[in-house]
Computed example of a mutant assay.
Amino acid sequence: MILSWFRNRRRRRILAEHFPADWQRLLERRLRHYRHLPLEQQRRLHQIVQVMVVEKEWAAASGLEITVEMKVTIAGEAAVMVSGHEPPYFFDRLHTLVIHPGTVRFSPHQAARNQNLPAGDFDGIAWHRGPVVLSWTRLRRELMGQSPGHNVVLHEFAHHLDGLCGEMDGAPPLGDVKREQQWYAVTESEFFRLVGNARRDEATLLDHYGASNRAEFFAVATECFFELPHELRERHRELYDTLADFYHQSPAEWLPRHETTANLQTDADGNYVHIDLRRRRRSDHAR
C-alpha cells in the first residue's frame, strides 16, 4: 500500500511534465504505427513512454551505450500494443530491459552453468517474471521495414503479458470465463491449423515459428495483428477479432496496409510466404 502510494505520487509528477517535442519527432520518424494512432491512444502512448523511460531499469550488454533514443523507441513500440487500455498500463511487473547491440547469444557452456539461460542465438528473450532482452540491431532492421510482419518488441512483450497470470502458455489474463472460453476455442483451432501447415511446409500468413508451442503462437499472432492487421483480418477473422478484444483496439481501422506487403512472395493461392530472417530458437521465452 505504501509502495503504491509513493509510486503513484512519482507517476503524477512524471506525467505532469509535457511530452518532449524531440521524443514526439522521434516517434513520428521511427514508429510506423504512431502517426496513425487515434488521438486518445497517442495520449496514452505518451504517458506509457514517459513512465517507462524513467521507471524501468535499462541495462546495456556487450559494451552498448543506452541512449534516450533507444529507450523512447522501445517504450513506444511496447506502448502501441497496450494503448487501447484505459487507464494506461505501464507494465508494472516488468522492471528491467536488457539491450544487446547485436544477436543475443548464450554459449552451451553459459547455459550449462546457469539453467535459466537458453543456449543459442536469439533476437530477443522474455524471462518469466524476469527481464525482457532485445537485440537493437534486429529492432533497427525491422523499423526500416526489412522484415514485414515481424516485430521483436511486440513479440517479447507479448510473452511478458502471457506470463502475467501464470506460466507462459499462450493464454494471457482475460478477465472472465466467457472471454477465456472464446479465447481457447479460437486460438486452439488456429494453433493446430498452423501446426498442420508447418508440418506440410505450406505457405502461411502467420510465421511457422508460431507452431512451436502455444506461447510462441500468441507472440507470433500479436506481431501479425499489429504489423499486418488487414491481412490477418481477411484471412483469420476470428483470430483477429479475439486479439482485438484482448488488446482493446483494431489496428486495421487506423493503420494503412504495410508499404512493403506487395514485396512478400505469394504462392498460387495468394498465401504469403514469409522468409524468416530471425535466428530465434524454440524458447525465446524462458522460465
Rank of each mutant, 00 (worst) to 15 (best):
L232W: 03
N213A: 01
L264H: 04
H230F: 02
G84A: 11
E17R: 06
E180L: 07
W5R: 14
F217A: 00
L161I: 10
E17N: 11
G130Y: 00
M70H: 11
H95E: 08
S107G: 02
V82R: 05
F19G: 02
A219F: 00
H208S: 05
R233G: 04
V80K: 03
V54Y: 01
N114T: 10
L37W: 13
R141I: 04
R199S: 12
R113L: 12
G210E: 11
H160T: 12
V53F: 10
A215V: 07
A59E: 03
P256Y: 14
R32P: 03
Q50W: 02
E238P: 05
T187F: 08
S250I: 06
P148E: 05
A262P: 04
H208W: 14
W136H: 10
E69F: 01
P38I: 05
H236Y: 05
R200L: 05
V104Q: 11
L94D: 12
S62A: 11
F19M: 10
T204D: 05
E57Y: 00
S4Q: 14
D22C: 05
V104H: 10
V51F: 07
L232Y: 06
I275E: 14
G196R: 08
R25I: 07
R214Y: 10
H85D: 09
E202H: 09
K178T: 14
R25Q: 04
E188H: 05
R200M: 03
L174F: 04
Y209W: 02
A286C: 15
W23M: 05
V133W: 11
I74Y: 10
R10Q: 15
R179I: 10
P87L: 08
P172V: 00
H46K: 09
H128D: 12
L232G: 02
A59W: 10
F226Y: 07
S283T: 13
N151Y: 01
R7E: 11
Q47D: 14
P108S: 00
G170K: 04
G170Q: 09
A252P: 13
L205C: 00
G84R: 11
N151P: 06
E190S: 04
G149F: 02
A21K: 15
T222C: 00
T222P: 02
W5A: 13
L134T: 14
L243Y: 04
F218I: 08
T222S: 11
R43D: 12
Q146Y: 14
V80Y: 11
Q249Y: 10
R141G: 04
V51P: 14
R43M: 05
F90H: 08
L174E: 01
R179Y: 02
E227V: 00
F226E: 04
F90N: 09
M168Q: 15
D207V: 02
P148R: 09
E55A: 14
A219Q: 02
F246I: 03
